[in-house]
Amino acid sequence: MKIIYLGNFDNPYSDVDEKHITYSLEKLGHEVIPINERYFYQERNRIVEEVAEGADVFLFHKGGIKFNVALEDFIELLNHITCKKVMWFWDKVAIKEIAQNREKWVQSVIPFIEYAFLTDETWARRHNYKNVYILRQGIGDKNAHLGKYRKEYDVPIAFLGSVYGERIEWVFRLKAIFREKFKVYNNIFGENLCDFCASAKIIVAPKYPQDDFYWSARIYKILGSGGFLIHPKLYGLKEEFEEGKHYVGYKTFEELVEKIEYYLKHDEEREKIRLAGHKHCIQNYTYTQRVKKMLEIISEK
């Protein structure tokens, strides 16, 4: 297939999933033409031209919403594209802290495309779109390995991510209990993430903004990079991971504290779970496996 891929390819503050997906698509034998959504208005004519020259798929995630691309302008582009149009939307669709109205954007775009892949199964279950499918994120193939110990990441308890919304109080409470044992990190990815996961004893994940059928890519990236993770117990998560074998789960803040204290003292159990979670994740949830599933669905119709 020839795939026109509109994405955010140069984010310096993130592990650019678009690059992992491009690698996976090319690994599977497809031609990928990456187009940076940051330059949507400069590139939209090129997109139409590439489609006219024989593209099979137009793949996108947020259609430039992060860079103030007007919804009507994006829909106008969709109307000019004659190949299969595919959206893979990774975020929680409805979240009050986000300034942009994600839900309105998603609902407006879905009628103009053939396939909408979401990670937010909770939102999908509440609606009745015939062209919506669930496709979770994963771990980039190049990052799916164990890292090496680095002293700067040697910390008993770590949280890796942004602190906002309900996470603010969650972080404050953990700091109050564990003090210097608990540290917050951000913008660690690639080889650094593998080393981080090899060095931090326990990595914790917050509940917010997850729910029983929506979770972020954190679990794939941490387990796939070799980290020991304490993560909220979510009903849908049992379809992909076994709690207590691949990761350690918690329901309440009090249970989280108990699990942290327990696994800080039980190195062998912690290491067994860490290695089992890593092996399971890289065997089942790489981006190559996710992309292959997507293309199978697209090819069926």
Rank of each mutant, 00 (worst) to 15 (best):
M1Y: 07
P12I: 11
K19F: 11
S24C: 10
I33N: 05
R38H: 13
E43Y: 13
V48A: 09
E49C: 02
E50C: 02
D56V: 00
F58V: 05
F58Q: 00
F60A: 01
K62R: 15
K62S: 15
G64Y: 04
T82C: 10
T82V: 12
K85R: 14
V86K: 01
F89N: 06
A99G: 11
R102Q: 12
R102M: 11
I110R: 10
I110P: 04
T122Q: 11
Q137P: 07
G138C: 00
A144I: 02
H145C: 12
L146Q: 07
G147L: 07
E152R: 14
D154S: 13
V184D: 05
Y185D: 10
G190A: 06
E191S: 13
L193V: 04
A200W: 04
Y208I: 03
Y208V: 00
P209D: 12
Q210V: 03
D212I: 06
Y214S: 07
I222F: 07
S225A: 15
L229M: 10
G236W: 00
E240P: 02
K245N: 08
V248E: 02
T252Y: 01
E254N: 12
E261S: 15
L264I: 04
D267H: 12
D267L: 11
R270Y: 08
K272Y: 06
C281E: 08
K292Q: 14
K293Q: 13
M294W: 03
